[in-house]
Each structure stands twice: as C-alpha cells, then as structure tokens.
Amino acid sequence: MIKHTREKQVKIVATGLALCMLAAPLSASAAESSVLMASGGVASVLETERTLEEYIQIAQDAQGASWGYTNIGVANVESGNLNVRAVSSTDGKLVGKLPKDAACEVVETVDDWAHIKSGEVEGYVSKEFLLTGPEARIRAMELVHTVATANTDGLNVRQEPNTTSEIVTQVGQGEEMEYVETGSDGWVKISIDGEDAYVSQDYVTVEEKLDTAITMTELLYGQGVSDVRVDLVEYAKQFIGNPYVWGGTSLTKGADCSGFVLSVFKKYGITLSHSSRAQANEGTKISASELKPGDLVFYGNGKGNINHVAIYIGGGQVIHASSPKTGIKISSYKYRTPVKCVRVIHD
C-alpha cells in the first residue's frame, strides 16, 4: 500500500475535489463529506481547511475563466518545448513549438494526437504531453500573467514615471512588456529584461494572457545563410523556455543574457566574454540591415550603455535569456531599440 505524507495527502484530496467542482460544482456539505471520506475524519479537515479552501477557490475561478479559449490545452512537458507538426505523425514537418506551460485551443483529438491552434501556429501535438479539460483550466489559473502591450509605435519607456525622465528605450506597436503595477499618476510600471521602467497608461493595453506557441523561422540553405549559422540558431532554439539565472552559463539549468550567448557560441569554437558590454566589442560592427542569423544584437539604457544581448535568428526575431520571469524566449529584434549589431561569425 502506498503511503503519502500529510502534505501530499492534502494536495491529492484538494486537487481531486477541485477537479470534481469544475465538472459539477459541489455544495458546502457535499464538499465536506468528500473530504471526510478521502482524508479520514474531522481532524484531517481541521488540519487542511485553509489549503482546501484555496484549491476550491482556484476551481471556482477557473470555472468562469476562458482567456479567449473554448477548449484550452496546456503543454505539460518537463522542460523545453512540445513539437507542433503539420500532420499527426512524428515524421510530420515541424511548424512550431509549444513551450512548457504554454496554452492552445484544442480543435479536436485524433487517436494519440491533438489538433491545436496557438498564437500564429496550427498543427498537431502528442496528447501525452498536453493537459486538457479541468486540469488544463486549473493549471492555466496558476500560469496566467499580466502584460502591458504597446498600442502605438515608438512608445517611450522612461526611467521614472514622468515625461521629463530619461528615455530608457522605445518599443514598437504590439510589443508585450512584463507588467508590474499601475500607479495612481497615470503611469504603468513595467519590466524589460529584468529592469523596471515606466510607460504612459494612455499608450498601453493591460491584459491577462497565457504564453502561446512559437513559429519556426525558416532558415534555408543556399540563400546567403551558411550551414554553421543555420545549425547555431537551431541549436539555440532547443533551450527556449529554460530558466534565466543571473551569472549563469548553463543552457539547461539557467543562464543570463551573455551567459546564454557565450555558451551557444562555445559549441562552435567561438570564445566570448561573460558580459554583454564586452561582447559588443568582440566582433565586427554591422548595420541592422546587414543582420544574418547568428549575428548579435545589443540593447542598452537611455545613455547608450549596453546591458543586454540577443542572438538574431532571422525573420526579424532574436532569441535571448530575457529575465527571471520569462527565461529564454524569442522576441522581435525591435522589442526594444537596438543600440548595436555585431558579427562574430565570419563566413
């Protein structure tokens, strides 16, 4: 017979009850009876009442939540990403990746596959690694986060909440920023690559969102992109969703922005410093119009001091270790104003 610790027993009972509530809401008396039967008596209820209430509240909130989904699914992988394929076969063309804990609309299920839509990606994923139904909704309640989306182009991001404060950078229309809080002074506090800043409330839309799938940038041989550039970019994409760790250089356990870059390039025999500012001087400066997959894009504060680096992957996108909250992710290379572009692969 399997024995569980009191903490695990409570979680099992509470989670089970919460799932039941999503399928058919229970009255208070029915809920109490279920707990009494599952956890063994009044003493157990008294010991676990607070935790149980929290799970019940999650279930109740999840019942009315949709986030724009009719039949939500959530990627349930240990790490990395869930492959999205054009057809329901492991031989199918890869059309996107669904990062760990990202959400999707489940259109239908066919045998061991689910037909999904997520962001700009539509295709098939293995049902084995996808939460659906009540479990997906409860998980989504834990994962939903608030973003501030720029509703104008060239939005000024300032160091302090006033129009005379220094402009840290600018972001393009449609770019999402990590939301921190809204002040009473008409300014929204946001975070860009782990650093707090401010934008005018008039030029952003604040909303709750779930992460969605990532489109695959097609890097074709014979079109000015060398084999090593293609390979480097595809290698870097394997680590999307992995954690950001200040001072880290591990592609799996955690890296900061320059640590991520140096570790990716190390595989290809290129040695770089563990500093974005230093890396900016370890290659040949190029213009944004000359960017090729594998080139480096640098960002800085309002004074032009470099404090962040990303790898250009083609299609106007970069991959970078962004912040502790978002980890390694893909963004538009103009998600904030680039201050320098550098080439370290010479082919």
Rank of each mutant, 00 (worst) to 15 (best):
G222H: 10
A30F: 09
E105L: 01
S332R: 14
E160F: 12
N83C: 12
V339L: 03
A288D: 11
G172F: 09
Y69T: 02
E128M: 08
G304I: 06
V168H: 01
G224Q: 10
A23M: 15
G92C: 04
G186R: 09
N307H: 15
E176F: 00
G248H: 07
S89L: 02
M1D: 12
N83R: 14
L262F: 00
G186S: 06
E160K: 14
V147P: 00
K97Y: 15
E47D: 14
F260S: 02
A62E: 00
G73H: 09
Q317W: 09
R139E: 08
G283W: 10
V230N: 10
I286S: 08
E207V: 03
G154R: 12
T182L: 05
G241D: 06
I56Y: 09
Y55P: 00
A38D: 08
Y55Q: 04
Y333R: 07
S66T: 11
G327H: 11
L155K: 06
V77G: 04
V87S: 12
C341G: 07
S44E: 12
S263I: 03
S200D: 07
D101Q: 01
G154H: 11
A148I: 02
D101F: 09
K303F: 10
L219E: 02
A236S: 14
S323D: 09
T215Y: 11
W246D: 07
T152N: 11
E53Q: 13
I311N: 08
A65W: 07
T337H: 09
V95R: 03
V77K: 02
E7M: 06
F239L: 05
